[in-house]
Design a protein around this nucleic acid. Sequence first.
DNA 1: TCAAATCATTGACATTTATCAAGAGTCGTT
DNA 2: AACGACTCTTGATAAATGTCAATGATTTGA
Lengths: 189, 189
Amino acid sequence: MHATLQEHIIKRLGKVPERFEEVAKAFEPLRPKRGTYLLQEGDVCKYVYFIVEGCLQVFVIDKNGNESTREFYTEEQWVTDIFGFKNQQASEEYIKCVEPCKLLRIHYDAFQHFSAEVPAFAQIYQQILELSYSSTVYRVNTLTSLDALDRIKWLMENKPTLMSRLSNKLIASYLGISPETMTRLKGKL
Amino acid sequence: MHATLQEHIIKRLGKVPERFEEVAKAFEPLRPKRGTYLLQEGDVCKYVYFIVEGCLQVFVIDKNGNESTREFYTEEQWVTDIFGFKNQQASEEYIKCVEPCKLLRIHYDAFQHFSAEVPAFAQIYQQILELSYSSTVYRVNTLTSLDALDRIKWLMENKPTLMSRLSNKLIASYLGISPETMTRLKGKL
DNA sequence: TCAAATCATTGACATTTATCAAGAGTCGTT
DNA sequence: AACGACTCTTGATAAATGTCAATGATTTGA
């Protein structure tokens, strides 16, 4: 699994990073099965996860008990609850495997250590931050400026693999609509 | 105006930063009046803005011509279209002064230069990134998991100054509801 | 300070979306 | 391969929110 990580890093950095072996050792492999929670509301998020294979759902639960998905993450993406992780505070989010996964995780302590000590690591972290922030900004804009049907179209055009990979119900929770509305609107396409 | 910037940086960094004078020179003061656009859809965003005084609205315009506000920024906050700025690509957002403002702006070239050359600058940038990302994540979760009334309550509890400082119409565009609904729901509190 | 423009509020009505329920279908696990 | 659990779809209905229009209030910039 570490080979995938190395390839990913080379892609990002354009070179084999300094001290890669050392950093790689801090990444612990993990093969959670479908349905496993990596984080629950109230937990302190102690890890950043790198997805070698599989799909993670990050969501909150509203007052009616419904899941609202903030984001789905798949192969070669980085996942954490950034606020809870950075401040080592109780999280408001859940992170759950919606497929059997192959993951690598790095602990908060190691993360802090390498951020400070290995410039290439800090550099990649910053790239990930910028990308994650950009895509979350984009997400806010689609949520507020598009109606339900246009959000579905948007997802089909921009993340077609998610659309086919995940259940109707999960997609609906990502788009902020009920599964029934999702079914009905898909009929209008 | 540079004094405000220095104070802000000292607060963030916990010390007077190295090479502050040099960096400060790259920040150009600006006093746009209410209604001024700092960025329009299709423009390439060439600056990061620091707000000394005033309030900026970042928004998109939907297919019906309505504004959807992604965020409001006020004193001592940093504003840009992160994606367009980082990639120097056409933006999809507008940035507009909703009050007369006192701003400092730094150009893309200087920003890149100091990011690479002045560690303290890079460090502050990363802090801003983390904070901005965290708050945008939070925003996604409130938008998808709360209904209109709870979003109003949330804003009143968490950003009361925005609530009193901005018009009903602007607040409504931030909460993703129509001004009429906003008026009606406020009556239910 | 005043005139023009914008904004807030309210009512009537339309539209969108949610909810609940039930049956058929699908999927995962053993 | 079969069981059980979950999911999808559809219909009927309810609830939430949007739209349009009119009036009065407020704000702003000259």
